[in-house]
Design a protein around this nucleic acid. Structure first.
Lengths: 157, 157
DNA sequence: TTGAATGCAATAGTCATGGATACATTACGG
DNA sequence: CCGTAATGTATCCATGACTATTGCATTCAA
């Protein structure tokens, strides 16, 4: 199984913020529909997001999900770490016999390498907030709309 | 299942070079033993490595595996790409309904993000050659040895 | 009180990956 | 030539992380 937790969680959080800006109440069912997944899966991802203070859910009729903090203060790194839960980007073999001199050192070497890779990725994610991302998505929307107009004009002209 | 192909392939390639430097003939069985894995798995990984001109295997009695190029010309990026075979670091959900305006753009946004992350990691891997890595492992070995001496001295003194 | 929502547990399904085995092929060396 | 030792390759099974589904308890506003 391919791990879809990060992309899904990201879509959830961004969707919550977009709904907020559009003045629409957001429920796990609506999120699930927009993602094409089960509402239970959405709620499963909401557990760690809620625990870490990224989203806040209110129960009962008229309830729903909203961001627990300002979107400017939530980075994609927060979401990633919350949802993937200790899972490393790469993991070294754990059961190498280490009979020859090299084996043990190769393992250590790889762990350093994996740590460096993960650090790079996390830093990249830390530089992007939910607010940034949503505004970037809005820009994509604009570009898409104008792209449609252009191509239609081109086709008609 | 955790994907261990890259760490395993890396240990294979580095092990081949280390054996070469030490004047030892390297076979898939020896590699498998030193990794604690099945020889079949080693050979499975050797297929793409051989196809892409990273290692070269000679059949028959007295045969074995060696590097197909100078270790200075093989980067860890080469090994990674060869072995993981089109598998992305992150993959977006493929089946989002895209009914609302945001969905399609979020997917595109995530694909860009994933591409950027993968680019960072690949660039980091491209900056390290097999020769670099082996010499770094040699240094780790030195450090480990001197570390042992220090701790033994400390315990005795 | 009722309906709409989250919270949560249990269970089954999926599927990429690793492990194991067998056997064909190749090539060296006597 | 023939035996040995190695790669090349195919097949099948085991494993385990992740997804999907269902059901039900809980909460809370109207």
């Amino acid at each position: 199984m391919i791990d879809l937790r990060f992309p899904t969680a990201l879509q959830i959080v961004l969707g919550i913020q977009i709904a907020e800006e559009d003045g629409v109440r957001c429920t796990s069912q609506k999120l699930a529909d927009s993602l094409g997944v089960n509402a239970s899966f959405v709620r499963k991802l909401l557990v760690p997001l809620s625990r870490d203070g990224i989203v806040a859910a209110s129960q009962g009729k008229g309830g729903g999900v909203r961001l627990a903090r300002k979107p400017e203060t939530i980075t994609l790194r927060d979401i990633y770490l919350t949802v993937t839960d200790e899972k490393k980007l790469w993991v070294a073999r754990s059961d190498v016999p280490c009979q020859c001199v090299a084996s043990a050192n190769i393992v250590q070497f790889f762990e350093r390498l994996a740590g460096e890779a993960e650090g790079l990725v996390l830093q990249m994610l830390a530089n992007r907030t939910v607010a940034d991302s949503v505004s970037e998505i809005r820009k994509l929307e604009m570009a898409r709309l104008s792209g449609y107009v252009v191509s239609r004009t081109a086709r008609n002209g």
